[in-house]
Every structure is written in C-alpha cells, then in structure tokens.
Simulated scan of single mutants.
Amino acid sequence: MKKILFLIAIALFTLTTVQAQRTIALFNGYNLNGWTVHGTEKWYVEKGQLVCESGPDKQYGYLSTDTSFKNFELTLKFKQEANGNSGVFFRSSIEGVKISGWQVEVAPLNQHTGGIYESYGRGWLAKPKPEDEKWLKPGKWNTLKIRVVDDRVTTWLNGHQMVDLTDSKIGAGRGFIALQIHDGGGIKVRWKDIFLTEL
C-alpha cells in the first residue's frame, strides 16, 4: 500500500511539474493575435512567418506580447533579409516607442547577436566573446534561445552559449516580451517557431 501511495505521489508531482512547464506558441502563424504593435514600422504575416520591415518613418518599432512573463525559456528562429539591427526584449514596458527593459541583440555579423543590452539605461551588460560571433548565419535561419530565471539570463545561438549574466536589476524586472526593429530604414527580419515555456 505504501508503495502504491508513493508511486501516486511521484505521478502527481511529475504531472504538476509538466503542467507548470507547459510550452506555448506565442505566434500562431496566421495573424498577430496576442501581440500589440508600437510605432509605424511594418509587422505582418507571410507564409506562416512573422515579418518586420522598415516603414516610411524609418523609426524604432516594437511588437509586444499582450501577456507579461517573469521566468521562462524562449526559443525562436530568425532570418535577416536586410542588414539591420533587431532584437528580443524581455521584462519590458513601453510608452509610445520608448521601451524600458532588456534586449537580447539580433544584429549583423560581429555586432553581438545574443548579447544583452539595457534600453535607456546602462547600455551593454554582456557581449559574446569575439570567437563566438561566428555562430551567426547571415541570411539564413538562426535559432535563438533565451532563458530568464530570477536575476540570471543565459542566451544561446544555434546551440552555442553566447552569454550568461546575473544582474539584480533584471531580477527585479517585470513586463512583456517584444520583438524590435531598429531605426534607420532598410531593415527586414523574419521570425518563426516562437515558443515559450514558463519556469
């Protein structure tokens, strides 16, 4: 009897753990449901992919989740079709197009993709080592993974760890996830397979 109760307890614990770590798709492949557009830059769906493209104003633009997330593991794929700066924000908030929070960089080769930047704050907090910049595949699909747990952020690009940062200010942060398009014009980035697991 004790053995049966023990097995039931283990099964319930496992089920609870699996439920607590349920993976969700942030992008449904059809429309922008669950997201909010900030700014005048272009965000649209094409062939099951989420596309951001510079608009006529050539300013910053953001696409934020309608839900806030604290601790999570996020994976996504991106492909840069034009040489420009983008990124993935987390624990962020926004007024107009002025965003406060932290960004995992998505940029051209040797411009610190996978690094962590604090917007309207301290600037660069962590950059990849020079030898790790090579893991970016320009013009091809890349896989980015971001793990945020309390005050620690770890990023991977195409399976290779890029940075591992512990920061108390990040630990106190709250807010949404957002994709960015940088100002300047001529930028086009495709995104797909955006999945998040709450931890």
Rank of each mutant, 00 (worst) to 15 (best):
R174D: 03
W156C: 00
A11P: 06
P56A: 12
Y62F: 15
N83V: 14
F90L: 10
A25Q: 10
I146V: 05
L63K: 05
V18N: 07
V106N: 11
G55T: 10
G84A: 13
A9E: 08
L144V: 00
T40I: 06
R152C: 00
I177D: 01
N83T: 14
A82T: 09
D66G: 10
S93A: 06
Q19A: 12
A82V: 08
W135T: 08
K79R: 15
E73L: 01
K188S: 12
V163G: 03
I94Y: 09
L7N: 07
F89I: 03
D57H: 05
D132M: 02
G29D: 06
D66R: 06
Y60L: 09
L144S: 00
T65C: 06
T154A: 06
W102C: 11
G173F: 01
G84C: 12
E198D: 11
F176C: 03
D132P: 00
V148I: 01
T154L: 00
Y44E: 14
L76W: 02
R122N: 14
T67I: 05
K192R: 13
Q19D: 10
E105G: 12
Q21N: 13
T155N: 01
K70R: 09
K70T: 09
A172K: 11
S100L: 12
Q161L: 00
H38R: 05
L136Y: 08
F195A: 01
N31G: 06
I181A: 08
Q180F: 04
P130F: 10
Q180G: 04
G55W: 13
N31R: 11
Y44H: 14
R122E: 15
T155A: 02
I181M: 06
L7S: 11
W135S: 03
S119F: 15
T16F: 15
G171M: 02
Y120T: 08
S119C: 11
P128A: 05
Q49V: 04
L157W: 01
I187P: 12
R174E: 03
S100R: 09
K70N: 06
